[in-house]
Design a protein around this nucleic acid. Structure first.
Lengths: 383, 383
DNA sequence: TTGAAAGCGCTAACAA
DNA sequence: TTGTTAGCGCTTTCAA
């Protein structure tokens, strides 16, 4: 049972007047303190910590020595007042627990660290059309905002614009098309999965959706349903899994308990697909890839685990992050965006064991996994 | 292919002199701008946004109206200069992808949002004894630092103290005991798992460790090994899984390929346990809970999935977060910590299907899961 | 290369 | 209740 050190309290002179302190803790040292100890001006201290400023080596050393002695670190928030750059980016995200997004945040954080940026986290729980927190979001005057998979009302877009806060959206679109957006090829993926399941010989399709308001989910569904229709199949059954394991399990039970139960289920993300997989397998005794085909969307790392072997449409996170970071930097520089404000990045359909394999078109990928390419007449089979 | 709006550039008067602007973007409005438009002083604007300040309703309304018109939000970084509170907490964490920690960060972020705090993220990749980034960490003058499962060298502890930065450690201990620490009952958990596996009739034990330097893993191992010794068993076999799925898979293969392969494997966290489980099941054809027992540590949500049914020692995250937040608040207030600087919180052993059940002692928990309580002579069986 | 001085956007003590 | 004033800790002209 150690005791706190507690010492170092009380006063300490600074310039002419003593600074007021907290009761138990001394305030952190400032450039003023360092300057005094080193016998230089505050400007010299500042220059020591500024890339490419001109300071004599001797001055520099004295500053650093004094700083070390005092435990001084420049205050980034104070600096940002003058430089107008906080090197902090806001990340608004609906749920960190979605498998793909934990991967996304980890990799994004890593990538931005290289760039000298840090992430300030806002977990938004999906907002669902309303946008509470918008004022708070804008109160932190971060360098830019990344809105990842959280619904953006047109009002938020407008507010950010008026507050001249740079924004980039990731995997969700601004309904009014004013905000730079990067997403995966949702509709394309949905279409490809339709082709894949048709080629696998399926007849009764279903889609487990995320949220209705979420463009991510609805785009995937749109592509899927459109392609089925084009090929002469009925509209897929539909259930809502709210992007979560628990809700998707319920949705899947509902689907499998109906008379004309589907033999092919496409899920709006991998979390829901793993739920569907397990419900089919452990509650209905179905063998995935044989009795039923289940396909996800994301290619989250876990889906490759032997117990799952999920067939899923890849979101190429590393590439997406690379591009996202570029977009953010452009927004921050305030450059003129001559390119499209809505970009999408396509991935491969990663073929594993949870869905029946078509007779042809399976091709290996560089990383050892397999994908599927529609053969012949672009996969159209009529009916 | 929408075009950017681009407008609103150029200059805008402010007081006597025009402020310099960026090229394409206007600077965000300040309290000065609002004050001018509303015909009041900057102080009045400030008061409007300060809890419990005295402003006439009429003034308040005029300020808010002007603010709305301009898209003004107070700048929190500027405010923090004066108030010495940024309402930002730094979170240093070694890897977001560990199942328990995604849960932890999500819940912590939620809990802190209620308290009015936001998290600034530092992913540290485990640091392993060295502590790069310490200067950067301290450059953001956040209100406090939470060091979650990342190795803290005594130097970092000292530096934070000198920079008078409040720190709380979560699931890792300051080697010198100077920093407030909260962890789960690692050694206790390790001992309980030893008892449990012994009661299950096992003979050949193994431990898959995280990192050697990590106190979290070594404490668990210490309790496990100590209890085995007390009960007259040989020291467990040992392999290093570095807290990751991939490395733990390799470790498990190594373990199962040795002549005296273990029939009971305790893993330092759940991620490694799920790896061990799948290697045993899919590569060695062993049936968990029958041919071999595998126990994890964390009780991450996924471990309850039907395909896993992992028996694991619970880290009661909600309770731990509650206490963590209290500790952080105390540190921030600078109050005298009269309590122990190292607290630990115990959880239950959650019994599922991945490990053989002892003949007695299985009891239900309130949430529907089951736990195990050693019976008789505190579980000691001698030999 | 250096220091003095002004000011980033905001708050708080004080006086009106 | 309000405005004036003096900073919070830092950077950045401008002269020296």
């Amino acid at each position: 049972m150690a005791k706190r050190s507690g010492g170092k309290a009380g006063t300490r002179g600074k310039g002419v007047s003593a600074r007021p302190r907290g009761r138990h803790k001394s305030a952190p040292p400032t450039s003023h303190d360092v300057a005094r100890l080193a016998g230089v001006s505050r400007a010299a201290v500042s220059r020591t910590y500024t890339q490419g400023a001109s300071v004599a080596e001797r001055t520099r050393e004295r500053v650093l020595k004094a700083a070390r002695k005092l435990g001084y670190r420049p205050n980034l928030f104070a600096r940002s007042l003058k430089t107008r750059r906080s090197r902090i980016l806001g990340l608004a995200i609906s749920d960190l627990r979605s498998m793909l997004y934990t991967e996304f945040v980890q990799l994004l954080s890593d990538r931005l660290a290289v760039e000298g940026y840090r992430l300030l986290l806002f977990v938004t729980h999906g907002w669902g059309g309303r946008d509470p927190g918008i004022d708070e979001l804008l109160t932190y005057h971060v360098d830019a905002l990344i809105l990842a998979s959280s619904t953006l009302s047109s009002r938020l877009a407008e507010e950010c614009q008026r507050a001249s806060m740079p924004v980039v959206m990731f995997n969700n679109v601004d309904p009014e098309g004013r905000v730079a957006t990067l997403s995966s090829a949702n509709a394309v993926g949905g279409r490809l999965i339709a082709d894949f399941l048709i080629a696998g010989g399926h007849r009764r399709f279903a889609y487990i959706a995320g949220y209705d308001v979420d463009s991510t989910s609805s785009e995937r569904e749109r592509g899927f349903a459109a392609r089925l229709r084009e090929c002469g199949y009925e509209a897929p059954l539909r259930a809502e899994g709210r992007f979560s394991f628990a809700d998707a399990s319920v949705a899947m039970r509902g689907l499998l308990s109906t008379p004309g139960a589907p033999d092919a289920v496409f899920c709006g993300n991998d979390d829901m697909a793993l739920a569907a997989l397990q419900v089919a397998q452990f509650e209905y005794g179905l063998k995935p890839g044989v009795d039923i085909s289940i396909v996800g969307f994301d290619n989250a790392p876990m889906t490759a685990w032997p117990c799952f072997g999920l067939t899923t449409y890849e979101q190429p996170i590393p590439r997406m992050i690379e591009r996202l970071v570029e977009l953010v930097k452009v927004e921050i520089e305030g450059g003129v965006m001559s390119v499209s404000t809505h970009e999408s990045i396509a991935g491969d359909l990663i073929v594993r064991t949870s869905a029946r394999l078509p007779a042809q078109g399976i091709v290996p990928r560089a990383d050892g996994s397999s994908t599927w390419r529609p053969t012949g007449a672009a996969g159209a089979k009529g009916r």
